[in-house]
């Protein structure tokens, strides 16, 4: 209706546009914490704890403890951002601010609302992974160009959480379940997915459990890419596992979003 002859922007891109627009309100604190978090974690875990570990164990998986922990923490940062962006903002867009309903009164369809929001999460995950990678480089942990691939690996890791979680968040009436996701999901995964020690050190029965979690694959993928010499076969398996979770989550979300928003 604008009278111009330019090509219309895809509908999902207009939904993404909203999320990018509203980010200008909080981008400073958001970007600052994206820098601070890796800085604090790498200093405490890598240099503090790491010097102790290296003195006694010499090396973990053939590298310094700092180099071992660093890329795993990238994957975990992606998990945390992927989770938080998929919980409260979705609840807000349905119940508190009702952004989704504002969008649905315009040409946007439910699928555009969903896809645009996930596309925004991809943008956020790219920022967080990119900044984290930069900090790893500043700590001298990036050894080859292959490490650049840790950015998409971080995005895949985060999205493997976001996609199923937005599908779940769209079914919720209250935000109570979100704190359960953190307490019984995010925190145990953070501790037991091979970030701080190889999962081979877990009791035998726990190892398959760790293997089934998305964070384990994200950590393994990011670590081998950052440290260099990532084995192709294993990397493909890790990426495929994460992609499968993303696809399943997205498919589920198309159903839960439609049920919630188009009644």
């Amino acid at each position: 209706m604008t009278g111009s002859r330019r090509r219309a922007r895809p509908l999902w891109l207009r939904s993404l546009g909203y999320w990018a627009f509203q980010y200008k309100r909080t981008w400073r604190s958001s970007v600052t914490s994206s820098f601070l978090e890796p800085l604090l974690f790498l200093t405490a875990m890598g240099i503090g704890l790491g010097s102790l570990v290296d003195r006694h164990v010499h090396h973990v998986a053939g590298v310094s403890y700092l180099a071992f922990v660093g890329p795993g923490l990238l994957a975990s940062a992606a998990m945390q951002v992927g989770t938080s962006e998929a919980t409260y903002p979705v609840m807000g867009a349905i119940k508190w601010i009702r952004t989704y309903f504002a969008m649905l009164a315009t040409p946007l369809r439910v699928i555009d609302v969903l896809t645009g929001h996930l596309a925004w999460i991809v943008v956020r995950l790219s920022m967080v992974s990119g900044i984290f990678l930069g900090v790893l480089a500043a700590f001298g942990l990036v050894r080859s160009w292959e490490a650049v691939l840790a950015l998409p690996a971080g995005v895949l890791t985060g999205l493997a959480f976001s996609a199923p979680i937005v599908a779940f968040a769209a079914t919720q009436e209250k935000d109570a379940a979100f704190s359960i996701i953190y307490r019984f999901g995010v925190v145990p995964l953070f501790l037991f997915s091979g970030i701080f020690f190889p999962i081979t050190l877990l009791p035998g029965w726990l190892q398959p459990v760790a293997w089934a979690t998305p964070l384990y694959h994200g950590v393994a993928l990011c670590r081998s890419l950052v440290l260099g010499g990532a084995p192709l076969g294993a990397s493909v398996v890790h990426a495929a596992y994460l992609l499968a979770l993303i696809a399943a989550g997205y498919a589920l979300a198309t159903v839960t979003y439609r049920r919630r928003l188009s009644v």
Partner: peptide, 9 residues
Amino acid sequence: VYARYFDIP
């Protein structure tokens, strides 16, 4: 923001 949903420049 709302106008942008309608692709208005």
